[in-house]
């Protein structure tokens, strides 16, 4: 659910990207729901099917944003990556079914050109197996969802330690 975004920008924002009717593309949404359920307070969680301008609106002016999305790079379904935007290259395809396929990458590129990026943008990408309409999310990806939710939950609880490690 796309919630109201707080105006101070200091509350960490988790963005789950995906389409719950298209198999493994639901991964980002499922992680965001798990975060909403398990992390108590101090975190804002939104779901979106993507969209360049929508992502810019969501993260512009924020201090810390964590985006979770399905992607396909030829790896095993359910495996996942954590990327610190600006430090590491994005996967070639960040989402198979969001409009334009490369919405997240396009939003980052446009945000960087227009200076509309959050101070910190972390992407958790879960490797997807299929994006077929009507099919359930695969067991492998559901396992990846649980792992990412746990890792992201820990990072939200201890952001400085994680950021130092990534920066280190």
């Amino acid at each position: 659910m796309t919630a109201e975004v707080s105006s101070d920008g200091r509350t960490p924002l988790v963005i789950g990207v995906g389409n719950e009717f298209r198999g493994d593309d639901a991964a980002g949404l499922l992680v965001s729901r798990e975060i909403r359920r398990s992390v108590k307070g101090g975190v804002q969680v939104v779901e979106t099917p993507g969209g360049v301008s929508e992502l810019l609106e969501l993260w512009d002016g924020r201090d810390r944003v964590y985006l979770v999305d399905a992607f396909q790079s030829g790896g095993a379904p359910g495996t996942w990556k954590r990327l610190l935007v600006g430090r590491e290259p994005l996967p070639t395809t960040t989402s198979g079914t969001s409009t334009h396929g490369a919405t997240v990458a396009s939003a980052i590129a446009l945000g960087q050109v227009l200076d509309r990026m959050p101070k910190l943008l972390v992407i958790y990408g879960i490797e997807a197996g299929h994006f077929e309409p009507g099919r359930d999310t695969s067991e492998e990806v559901l396992m990846g969802v649980r792992e990412v939710a746990r890792a992201l939950g820990q990072e939200l609880e201890l952001p400085n330690r994680k950021t130092e490690r990534e920066g280190g």
Binding site: S53, E54, L114
Partner: peptide, 30 residues
Amino acid sequence: AKDDPDTVRRGLALKKAGNALMALLGGREI
């Protein structure tokens, strides 16, 4: 946007206005 950021900003501003209307009446933008 690299050469002409203002043109792209105009588009984003218009889209934001449409989204705001959808969020107000629809409960959320998307």
